[in-house]
């Protein structure tokens, strides 16, 4: 990324400013490249959607809360463990980290709150939670792409919004959509997570 740093001769002001700009951009881009959270939630959601599909089609006993409550509990539990595992300085936030983490917190809490409230009030609508989660995930990916400068993440955002458009267009919302969501979670959450993890480990 940076050349000739081992040559420590004094620079002229223009070179100084160019180096400052380049390094500040690199520092801003460092957020969101670890990909751990994407892998975690992508795998959990893929499994949960697939198990729900098996349940809906009679391969497993009828259940819903029994699938999703443990899924949320495991996900947030691991998130809590990951947060405690990192030394305090890694939790220091720049503007990009705040924007990125806020966007994804909205996804997690928004979906969780809708799920909990709708189940408790017996108004749960599978189409509504699909639309909500696809819209929020697309938005969160877009925010992450903008603040980090990782442009290809915008295509992942578009992917989620394509899922949103598809689900919206369905007149009959049946169990097959659970397979679509399982595939979307694998392709648009887990896979980008592994790519980001690889980029992070290679220092790019």
């Amino acid at each position: 990324m940076v050349n000739d740093l081992n040559d420590d001769r004094p620079m002229n002001p223009a070179d100084d400013l160019a180096l400052i700009r380049q390094m500040m951009e690199a520092g801003r881009d460092r957020v969101a490249v670890s990909g751990v959270h994407f892998i975690l939630w992508g795998m959990l959601l893929t499994i949960a959607f697939f198990v729900q599909y098996l349940s809906v089609y009679g391969y497993l006993p009828p259940m819903m809360v029994e699938i999703w409550a443990p899924m949320f509990a495991i996900g947030w539990g691991i998130e809590f463990w990951l947060a405690r595992r990192c030394p305090p300085p890694t939790r220091t936030s720049n503007l990009a980290v705040v924007a990125h983490s806020s966007a994804w917190t909205v996804v997690g809490l928004g979906t969780l709150v809708y799920f909990a409230v709708s189940v408790l009030t017996k108004t749960f609508d599978p189409k509504a939670i699909t639309l909500l989660s696809a819209a929020l995930m697309g938005g969160a990916y877009w925010v992450t792409a903008v603040v980090t400068g990782v442009r290809w993440l915008k295509y992942i955002a578009l992917g989620w919004w394509a899922v949103l458009a598809y689900a919206t267009s369905l007149t009959v919302y049946d169990g097959e959509m659970l397979l679509v969501m399982a595939a979307a979670s694998a392709l648009l959450l887990t896979l980008p997570g592994f790519v980001m993890r690889r980029l992070y480990n290679s220092g790019e």
């Binding site: 940076v2 740093l5 180096l19 400052i20 700009r21 951009e25 520092g27 220091t92």
Partner: peptide, 28 residues
Amino acid sequence: SRVRLAIMSYLASARAAEFTELKKVLKV
């Protein structure tokens, strides 16, 4: 100094970074 200016510039926006991360970014 080039290296120290690069470190400070990187940390000014990132706030914190791992040693190995800095080493990779700065290539030193």
